[in-house]
Simulated scan of single mutants.
Amino acid sequence: MLREALSYIVGLGNNAEKVQVLEICGETYANKRLERYGAPKRASAIEAASLSAMVDYIASCSSEFPDCHNMIIEIVGPEEVNLVSALDMERKRECLFTCRAEISKYHFDSWYDQERFMIEIQSNFVQSTDRDILVKFAGNVEQKNNATYSDDGKTQVATMSTGVASKSDVIVPNPVYLAPYRTFQEIEQPFSNFVFRMGDKEVPAFSLIEAEGGLWKNEAVNRIKEYFRKALEGMPESIRERIVIIG
């Protein structure tokens, strides 16, 4: 009985491994993913973190482009750009190069305590007037209490140290116009508006919330396109005429 049971189980496994070909409504299907022998081989993409690396590759290694095929610089978004070939005879593309940006690690819509906020805002945002205002404000705001902190949903007021022994009530800056490091370093980081909030907590806490619905992404993509346009202008026509920029 045990032998028969084991044989039955082994048989089920063997049947599951078999490739079954079915025809349904005039279409042919297989229950396994089949790899065709003799299929064209495709290279693995080179990966880098900068746009300049892709420009160097295009300028120096254009001989690696598939024969008689144009190449497409595909700008997926502010953080990713791919160099892919046009469709081949099998209606497939080959990706030769991928760029992924190293971006800010700041977490929007999260609360930071006073010291951490000052570190994050200076290390993850481009220097600007509003950034400096936030640093000054966060570094001098006093621990809140009922008399020194108010919030009506639109405007927040807090007590801030203004000297060795003096204090004054100031309006929390809002909105603020900032440029986080959120795309490739070769292009100018796009600015956008953020809502700045102080938290109703025991100690000073601060948060930034994106306030433009991601419109900065279109600006970043356009700047990446312009970066590649200028880079291609300095290359031989034999290379330029084979490159299309899409984004």
Rank of each mutant, 00 (worst) to 15 (best):
residue 152 D to G: 06
residue 214 G to I: 07
residue 138 A to R: 08
residue 200 D to Q: 10
residue 152 D to Y: 14
residue 172 V to H: 02
residue 141 V to F: 03
residue 137 F to K: 00
residue 188 E to M: 06
residue 150 S to G: 12
residue 156 Q to I: 11
residue 136 K to M: 09
residue 186 E to Q: 14
residue 225 K to E: 15
residue 195 V to F: 01
residue 140 N to W: 00
residue 164 V to F: 03
residue 204 P to T: 09
residue 223 R to Y: 06
residue 175 P to W: 02
residue 165 A to D: 10
residue 156 Q to T: 13
residue 197 R to L: 11
residue 161 S to P: 00
residue 179 A to F: 00
residue 163 G to A: 13
residue 196 F to H: 05
residue 183 T to H: 01
residue 176 V to D: 02
residue 209 I to E: 15
residue 211 A to F: 06
residue 210 E to W: 06
residue 215 L to V: 14
residue 225 K to Y: 10
residue 153 G to I: 13
residue 190 P to D: 03
residue 231 A to T: 07
residue 196 F to N: 01
residue 203 V to I: 12
residue 196 F to M: 02
residue 215 L to T: 14
residue 229 R to V: 15
residue 231 A to G: 09
residue 204 P to Y: 08
residue 202 E to Q: 13
residue 175 P to S: 06
residue 157 V to T: 15
residue 150 S to A: 15
residue 167 K to Q: 08
residue 212 E to Y: 02
residue 162 T to F: 03
residue 146 N to C: 11
residue 176 V to H: 04
residue 223 R to M: 07
residue 203 V to N: 12
residue 214 G to L: 08
residue 228 F to S: 05
residue 149 Y to Q: 10
residue 168 S to Q: 09
residue 161 S to D: 01
residue 173 P to G: 08
residue 219 E to M: 05
residue 204 P to D: 11
residue 151 D to M: 07
residue 205 A to T: 13
